[in-house]
Amino acid sequence: MSYPFELDGETLWDAGYHSGQLYASLARGAAEFLELPSGLTPNAQGGCDVDLEPFRVFVERLYELYTSTRNEVLHGLAHGLLATSLVLLERAGGAVALTPPYAAVLLEEKTSLAHSMAV
Rank of each mutant, 00 (worst) to 15 (best):
S2D: 12
Y3F: 15
Y3Q: 03
P4W: 06
P4N: 02
P4L: 00
F5D: 00
F5R: 05
F5A: 00
D8Y: 13
D8L: 09
E10I: 12
T11I: 14
W13G: 01
D14E: 14
A15R: 02
Y17F: 14
H18K: 14
S19G: 10
Q21T: 05
L22H: 10
A24V: 07
A24M: 08
A24R: 13
S25N: 13
L26G: 08
R28Q: 12
R28W: 08
A31C: 08
A31Y: 09
E32N: 11
F33C: 03
S38I: 01
G39H: 06
P42L: 04
A44Y: 11
A44D: 14
A44L: 10
Q45G: 07
Q45C: 01
Q45D: 12
G46M: 03
C48L: 03
D49F: 04
V50T: 04
D51V: 10
L52R: 15
E53V: 07
F55P: 11
F55N: 02
V57Y: 07
V57P: 06
F58T: 03
E60K: 11
E60T: 12
Y63I: 05
Y63F: 12
E64C: 10
L65C: 04
S68P: 06
T69G: 08
T69E: 09
T69M: 10
R70H: 14
R70E: 11
E72S: 14
V73Q: 15
V73E: 13
L74Q: 15
H75V: 06
G76H: 12
H79C: 01
H79S: 09
G80V: 04
L81P: 13
L82G: 06
L82H: 07
T84L: 06
S85T: 08
S85W: 02
V87G: 01
L88A: 00
L88M: 06
L88D: 04
L89Q: 06
G94E: 00
A95L: 01
V96C: 08
L98N: 08
P100S: 05
P101R: 04
Y102T: 07
Y102S: 10
A103L: 07
A104I: 04
L106V: 08
L106Q: 11
K110N: 02
K110A: 00
T111G: 11
T111H: 12
L113I: 10
A114K: 14
S116V: 00
V119H: 13
